[in-house]
């Protein structure tokens, strides 16, 4: 999770897409344009208690005057979607982060196979709109219980035309993941939906011999564990062999500083990145908001992150 600007946006339109799904149109109250975004991007909505919920943008990619997102009321969920359904009305304000895209379309691909389950269709609708606009070769498989409960169905039909294949359980049509077909050069697979569906697609892709690099899945990570309980651990210093104990109530940075290691630091909250340092072995519990996932293999943020039992630092 990286830092993004948060804007207070205004709800410009509310529309029921299905009995469970509301489609919200958001605009900036003062500015004509919102940040640019591409298909597959999502934003964080901030709830009144500070928790974040991720929603994919499902409007027309490239349109910056307004954003659209669809929220399914999750009964028995953690309460975020129920609050949004209750609180968001025409003219109300909502805190929204700038978009980030962990699920982009692969530029220059020859063909795209999209598999959506239920509300998981939101990023794929934006993708379909993007692909249709450039005249790309694609198929979107859309699984839902019924046409009535399928979110954004008219929008999908308009965007995809005959490239949309619907699989509605109530009509007795069940999606067979083998329909993604065998891997072909330049063909990319994108899936978003319930865990069971994405796992079935993943298994089929593996069985059919798809390369990892051609498969793309959107999985929303749970936010930082609010119940995190710090445990003591050992810091080993690679250059000197020193072993320093970090008690449960202190940060690795504090212990390092006390031992004479002058690491730069600023925020001491895991957001600025000043104190980031390298590590060798050990299981690090990354709790910062600054390091990209790829960097976490060998870099950690000692002001906030910890380790299980022991970690060796490149100091």
């Amino acid at each position: 999770m990286t830092a993004r600007i948060i804007q207070k946006l205004r709800v410009a339109a509310v529309q029921a897409s299905t009995p469970e799904v509301m489609l919200y149109t958001l605009e900036h109250p003062r500015k004509p344009l919102l940040p640019a975004w591409e298909a597959g991007a999502h934003v964080d909505l901030r709830l009144p208690d500070g928790r974040l919920r991720q929603y994919s943008l499902c409007g027309e990619p490239g349109v910056q005057q307004r954003w659209q997102l669809a929220v399914k009321r999750e009964e028995g969920g953690r309460g975020g979607s129920a609050w949004l359904h209750g609180a968001l009305a025409m003219g109300s304000d909502v805190l929204v982060s700038s978009p980030r895209n962990n699920f982009p379309l692969v530029a220059g691909a020859r063909r795209h196979v999209l598999v959506a389950g239920g509300i998981g269709v939101t990023p794929l609708l934006a993708m379909a709109r993007s692909l249709a606009a450039e005249g790309a070769d694609f198929t979107l498989h859309f699984c839902a219980r019924s046409a009535e409960l399928a979110p954004l169905l008219p929008e999908l039909r308009a965007a995809c035309r005959e490239q949309l294949v619907t699989w509605f359980a109530e009509e007795g049509r069940r999606f067979d993941p083998a329909l993604i077909g065998g891997p072909e050069a330049g063909t990319h697979l994108y899936a978003c939906g319930p865990h069971r569906l994405t796992e079935a697609v993943r298994a089929a892709a593996r069985a059919l011999g798809w390369a990892e690099a051609n498969q793309h899945y959107e999985v929303f990570q749970p936010t930082l564990d609010e119940n995190f309980k710090p445990e003591p651990f050992e810091l080993r210093i690679a250059s000197t062999g020193q072993v320093l104990l970090v008690p449960a109530d202190r940060s690795a940075l504090e212990v390092l500083r006390e031992a004479g290691f002058a690491l730069a630091s600023s925020c001491e909250l895991g957001v600025c990145g000043s104190c980031v340092c390298g590590y060798r072995d050990g299981v690090v519990i990354h709790r910062d908001n600054v390091l990209p996932v790829a960097a976490r293999q060998d870099r950690m943020t000692p002001c906030i992150s910890r380790a299980r039992v022991s970690v060796t630092l490149d100091l």
Partner: peptide, 11 residues
């Protein structure tokens, strides 16, 4: 004042 990586991230 000094710049911070957080600003880079935000922007």
């Amino acid at each position: 004042n000094f710049p911070c990586k957080y600003l880079e991230e935000l922007l």
